[in-house]
Simulated scan of single mutants.
Amino acid sequence: MLLYKQKKNQPSKGNRFLISVTVLGSAGPIRFVVNEDELVAAVIDTALKSYAREGRLPILGSDLNNFMLYCPIAGTEALSPWETIGSVGVRNFMLCKKPQTENSIDSEKSSAISRKGSGSWKAWFHKSLNLKISSH
């Protein structure tokens, strides 16, 4: 019988555990394994990459600075990006977009206006959804 021996010059990786991250507005949770000493920011990044890889909707983007990770059991405060995921003591989390400020909303409106004339299929699709069909 062969026993696995850890190399002496290799540091211990710490405990690993399965977490479940529910994205607000998505169909179901994303599950993946993390180290207990991994930072919350790294967990958010991994969750966003897994979400995009699976092709889930709504499309979120990849900037982890636009998101907050909550622990529904621990309270209403978002977790700090610099704390470790294992320090919370739970395995179920909620990923939400940060609330937008007025400046970011204004910049999004101006960029949407500038894109309107581009003639992209997305603009046509959104315009066609906004058409009202009158019923008799």
Score class of each variant (00 low, 15 high):
Pro11Cys: 03
Gly75Thr: 05
Gly89Ser: 10
Ser128Gln: 13
Asp106Gly: 10
Asn103Asp: 15
Ser110Trp: 02
Pro58Glu: 03
Asp63Pro: 03
Ser62Glu: 08
Lys8Ser: 14
Gly89Thr: 05
Lys132Asn: 09
Gly117Gln: 13
Pro81Trp: 06
Pro29Val: 05
Ala52Gln: 09
Lys5Val: 14
Asp37Glu: 08
Ile30Gly: 00
Leu131Met: 15
Pro99His: 07
Cys71Val: 08
Ala47Trp: 00
Leu2Gly: 15
Ser80Pro: 03
Asp63Ser: 02
Gly89His: 07
Gly61Glu: 07
Ala41Asn: 00
Leu60Glu: 06
Val33Asp: 04
Asp106Lys: 15
Gly117Trp: 11
Val40His: 02
Leu48Ala: 03
Ala52Gly: 07
Arg56Met: 02
Phe93Ile: 09
Glu54Met: 02
Asn103Cys: 12
Pro29Trp: 04
Lys127Val: 05
Gly14Trp: 11
Ile59Leu: 08
Ser62His: 07
Arg91Gly: 13
Lys109Arg: 12
Leu57Ser: 14
Ile133Phe: 14
Lys132Arg: 10
Arg31Ile: 13
Thr84Met: 03
Asn9Gly: 15
Ala123Lys: 04
Ser62Ile: 11
Cys96Ala: 12
Gly55Cys: 05
Met68Phe: 08
Cys71Asn: 08
Ile30Trp: 00
Lys109Gln: 12
Gly119Ser: 08
Ile73Gln: 04
Gly55Ile: 04
Lys132Leu: 13
Ile30Ala: 01
Lys5Phe: 15
Pro99Asp: 12
Ala42Phe: 00
Leu131Trp: 14
Ser114Met: 13
Asn65Tyr: 01
Leu18Gly: 03
Lys5Asn: 15
Pro99Tyr: 09
Val90Glu: 11
Lys49Arg: 08
Ser134Lys: 15
Arg31Leu: 12
Tyr51Arg: 00
Asp63Gln: 01
Val43Thr: 04
Phe17Leu: 08
Leu57Pro: 04
Asn92Gln: 03
Phe32Tyr: 13
Ile73His: 00
Arg16Asp: 10
Lys97Gln: 11
Gly14Ile: 11
Val40Tyr: 01
Pro29Arg: 02
Lys116Met: 15
Ile113Arg: 09
Lys5Gln: 14
Asn103Glu: 15
Leu39Ser: 05
Glu38Leu: 00
Arg16Met: 13
Asn130Cys: 03
Leu64Lys: 02
Leu57Asp: 11
His136Asp: 12
Val43His: 00
Ser114Asp: 14
Ile44Asn: 01
Glu54Trp: 00
